[in-house]
Design a protein around this nucleic acid. Sequence first.
DNA 1: TGGCGCTGTCCACTGGAGCGGACGTGTGAA
DNA 2: TTCACACGTCCGCTCCAGTGGACAGCGCCA
Lengths: 166, 166
Amino acid sequence: MDLDERLSSLIAAFYPDERKRPGYARLAQLIRESTGRTISGTYLWELTTGRKRNVTLEQLAVLAEFFGVPLEYFVNDEVSRQVDAQLKLAVALRDTKVRSLALRAEGLSSASLDALLTIVNEVRRVENLEQVSEKGEPPPTRPQDNPPHDDPHAEDRPDRPGARRS
Amino acid sequence: MDLDERLSSLIAAFYPDERKRPGYARLAQLIRESTGRTISGTYLWELTTGRKRNVTLEQLAVLAEFFGVPLEYFVNDEVSRQVDAQLKLAVALRDTKVRSLALRAEGLSSASLDALLTIVNEVRRVENLEQVSEKGEPPPTRPQDNPPHDDPHAEDRPDRPGARRS
DNA sequence: TGGCGCTGTCCACTGGAGCGGACGTGTGAA
DNA sequence: TTCACACGTCCGCTCCAGTGGACAGCGCCA
């Protein structure tokens, strides 16, 4: 409900492994690198700990862009709830583009989703990935177990949420 | 698209008669009286003329509360377009509560709207108001022609947009 | 004509948003 | 153990969001 809670829950959602979570300074650096706009680590800390709360629209836009959430996430309870729910699901997959895809899929008709599912499954087959058979709840895997990844630079290029048009 | 355009279009929508439109100082006073929170007339002028643009969330909330629009109006193009369209319609009726009612009616099912229309028409009959027969487009009446009004205090209590839960 | 009230515009000022640069601590590698 | 690095925390600074108080110009009324 408050800005600090929203920010910290956002960070926690994107970096579920607490031991590998970047600090405020490092997070600020990531933001600068990926969005081009800047926000200081100190200010990031002040915001997430509730020490400063009267943010400017400009700063809020930077955060929204970096985390790939709509700006309304910070001002609209309903939007933040929706996004949070999607985040919790998508973050388990540990892939920023999947996260972005999930965000965009929200609200599509059941028929469209079925069609998309068929396409994705076909692509998985072409890419020689294991087929996902999911019934109801997904199995309770620990998300931060750091599954093997093909990308050789995965370690020195830490996760960055997908970009999103404003 | 920009904050200044949105603000001035909002003001113009709520006070269509340019000669009776309150100035920035008077507008600021109205805001203080009706919302309890404050914003200075000077700052109001700076915002609507584009001299200052990096608003704080707090100030934006004051404006949103006063004008009875959701906070997203200032950050979301689609929301602002929707609200603007509704405003243009409702403002012609020159009544803040009607405006508020129209805002809330958006999205209701056709059946519910029909039921509400029936109720309103019945109330009009009870209140001895002329029946409104409207087919398709409303007749092109000039909105600011200041139609006769029963309320004796209508002149010294200038229009104030309806309140709205945040 | 002069005075009153309201307007848009301006400017100097204050408080706090936002930042840079420190501090002490913890942890992992040499 | 020592070095190096990243962490959370804090302090003090800059600058601008936001305000108060002016100003001249306007229409209105005596």
